[in-house]
Amino acid sequence: MRWPRRPRYLAWLESGVSALLFLCAFVTVLTTIGIVAVLGVQTVGFFRIARIGITDFLFGVVLKPDARPPLFGVVPIFWGTMIVAIGSSMIALPIGLLSAIYLSEYAPRKARAILKPTLELLAGVPTIVYGYFALMLVTPVLRALLEPLGLRVETFNALSACVVVGVMIIPLVSSLSEDVLSSVPRGLREAAYGLGATKFEVSTRVVLPAGLSGVLASFILAISRAVGETMAVVLAAGMRPQITLNPLTSIETMTTYIVQVIGGEASYGTAKYLSLFAVGLSLFAVTLVLNIISGLILRHFREAYQ
């Protein structure tokens, strides 16, 4: 008996489909090329039209795009971004790490089955909701707490932005760290218990050091998220570019500046309009570096244990 040959069109279909799927995958590469090209080309245009040097942009401490002559120093908004990133990490990193330890080491299975999805739900809340939360609840609460002490809290302030962005990135830290901590081999834990260690000692001196690189990677990823966060910061921290250490005043971050420029009346092709691309490129560069570092650390961890 002879098998029938495959029909000719099947071969065409095969190569057609694989070409089509390749194109789909290539879209992702095109996206990266597009981002880099758009930001690069328009940033060069910005430097040509605004007639400023790169050092004036990177190290200028005054950002006044509407002044005459306009001043485009990126330092104030970079400062604001750092304030939000550091402030929110101070909230999110300890809480996220402790949650991860609880979920991976302490929690009974049933509690974990409820707590983990709840934390993931927190990650699914849109950022605009966090912004509203800051404006409606966090700032009034801060006012009620701090105004009696004689501190003036502005309607838009950096502290409430830090609080909400911190809450927002808790699930990122906790879920990634928890993955890493649970994948630390059982044998390590059992050896430590066998030597008479308590649960606390196992968690902090065996599991945590073993998963440290993964935990660090999750920290850096969370900071990168805080750097790129837009809407919560727009609504919480306001739009005043200034270099200050007082968290109760309004600041401006890089993302907020971009929103401010696009929301204002800057017309297409002016220096102010093009400056959003230069700021966008700086933002992209910062988050990309953070993500790459985080990826490298995570790969190092995977090589060690998985």
Partner: peptide, 17 residues
């Protein structure tokens, strides 16, 4: 690697694109 990095790009950068 490219996709992993794209996942970490802030959403506003996609807006600029």
């Amino acid at each position: 690697t490219n996709i992993a990095n794209l996942a970490g790009v802030p959403s506003i950068v996609y807006g600029i694109l």
